[in-house]
Design a protein around this nucleic acid. Structure first.
Lengths: 201, 201
DNA sequence: GTCTATAATTCGATAGAC
DNA sequence: GTCTATCGAATTATAGAC
């Protein structure tokens, strides 16, 4: 799979370092990837990396920040343009969550799986972004329950389940002519609503 | 978190090596864990490990096999004791899937996340177990659609979503007095049925 | 079955030339 | 900004004593 990053995150050699690191970290993990591997993939020698990043950890830090920022900003834009009724908001939220994860699948994987390899000092900012993202993402569900639109007696488990769908998507989803990213996002949004609403059984 | 393994998977020092490796692999990943760390956690020196396992990879191989076998056998037992109607079978399947994942959370994490660090030769058996597990787990859903009990026009995405709930559970679930493993399993089984059945909307 | 000692390699990172 | 050369430490694994 060719690595991708949201626009506006570097140019030239710096960007290529980020892209190849993204690909290698996603497939081999952060500790399993050497600076020599990254350099070879970029087409330079290992010491040249340190002209663009102070250390291997700083590369991971950048990727993790890009991933967390991209998701948070996408969710913020979604909610800002969305009418207030909880069903519409949850649908839009799930759609954006899924689309963000499958549009940049390697970034989502690295952001989620490799964050804990950062020192506390360098993961603090990402963790704060994650906290705000979770707060944003859970609010429409809570409002829906308060308004009586959603019947979820155990909103926490249902919220976790809905989130899990999107988080796992990058690990298996491969777009096909009959099931593209938008189709998956629509399908998962529909499933989320079914989960939150009382069944007919 | 204290590491746990299903009964009957070793004794004495060999078992302690497996348990400490499980804990370390889950938290730091396979490449991020050194044989010295494992040995220190067990209370021996690194070379003594090789009296019990031929290499570090063989430790991971054992853990991954234990994880895949435990899930497959649990699902087989569940289906064997289950009446034929699809709703009951899917409920039971999801319950067992979730319970297996939250009963041995570190094992589930290592089994899923670190499998790819094995050479193809040593991961072949685990991959075969996984293939059979997926076949087993998807059959009741397919049968339900064929019988007209489930409305899932896109069974593949729904099956992936249901599986994602259980796979992600070990990463966040902490049992509490009001939400134990059985409660989570029941809740997720109910969500699975809601996903598979047509909503009232 | 555990130890000390060590081999052989690889790691992240730096020095200094160009 | 890239290179060659290299440092110091850490890696997996082995040899051989007890």
């Amino acid at each position: 799979m060719e690595p991708r990053l949201p626009p506006g995150n570097g140019t030239g050699t710096e960007l290529r370092i980020l892209l190849e690191s993204l690909r290698l970290f996603a497939h081999q993990g952060y500790p399993g990837t050497s600076t020599r591997q990254i350099a070879t993939a970029v087409g330079i020698k290992a010491p040249s990396l340190y002209e663009h990043f102070p250390s291997k950890q700083h590369i991971l830090e950048r990727l993790v920040l890009i991933g967390h920022r991209d998701l948070l900003e996408a969710l913020e834009r979604t909610l800002a343009e969305c009418p207030p009724d909880p069903v519409t908001r949850v649908r839009a939220l799930v759609r954006t969550h899924v689309l963000s994860h499958v549009t940049y699948p390697l970034l989502a994987i690295v952001t989620n799986d490799e964050l804990h390899h950062l020192t506390p000092e360098r993961s603090a900012e990402a963790l704060e972004l994650r906290r705000r993202t979770e707060q944003l993402a859970t609010e429409p569900g809570m409002r829906g329950v308060r308004d009586g639109v959603f019947d979820a007696a155990e909103l926490i488990t249902t919220t976790a389940a809905i989130s899990s769908m999107g988080v796992r998507a990058p690990y298996w989803f491969v777009p096909t002519p009959t099931l593209g990213p938008e189709d998956l996002a629509d399908a998962y949004a529909e499933l989320a609503i079914r989960m939150l609403q009382p069944g007919s059984t």
